[in-house]
Amino acid sequence: MIFTWNIPARDGGLAGDEMLLAFDRGRTARVLICPAWFDEANKLRRFTVEVMRRLDAAGIDSLLPDLPGCNESLVALQKQTLGEWRSGMAAAAQSLSATHVLAIRAGALVAPAELPGWHYAAQSGPKLLRGMIRARTIAAREAGISETSEGLMAIGRESGLMLGGWHIGAKMFRELEIAEPTVAHNQTEIAQSQIGGSGLWLRAEPDEDAGQADRLAALIADSIG
């Protein structure tokens, strides 16, 4: 279930290894999972893998690559850019022979446009930043430090920013400020209301919901046919 995938190196250097969690039995339908990011990645990790288990039971392979700089990755998060995450996901789709893509929350920002698939509760770059910056200003206020969203945005654009423990580089920050998920041809948006219940990314602490995982997996399995 645990594999690695090779991400092409920038500047033609050696390819980097990143972790891959996969239910890979060489079946016809192979769904690339573009996971949620940062804090939401933690909150949605179990849900994501529970959906993958259900897809496996429905006869569908699924492939969840780590984004470079996240989880077990050996490269620094602060050096990552949105553009490189996009090309990394496109490379993963190709090398893993993905036939579909399921993007979750901000994962929609890096979903390969050429694959048919689904965007589940897609999150835009500006909203992602807004939430993380707000968390930082609230924590700062609690600690008696004065920080403003505007001031933090300026620092982020100029030299990157530590948000919620994630060091986001300046280029990534500037890219996220204008990044909107694009639903490509053959891709469908799945709103939380179609899944029922409340989004697990909202929870203060990671949680699970078997019913939600059932419904998202069923929606995908029915659509693949």
């Binding site: 804090d39 909203k127 807004r130 939430g131 993380m132 707000r134 968390a135 930082r136 609230i138 924590a139 609690e142 919620g164 990314w201 909202l202 929870r203 203060a204 602490e205």
Partner: peptide, 19 residues
């Protein structure tokens, strides 16, 4: 709320306000 419920940290409060 904030300061009384340990699970309601700054990240969760930020999520609540954004929602």
């Amino acid at each position: 709320l904030f300061g009384h419920l340990p699970e309601l940290d700054s990240m969760a409060v930020a999520g609540l306000l954004t929602e």
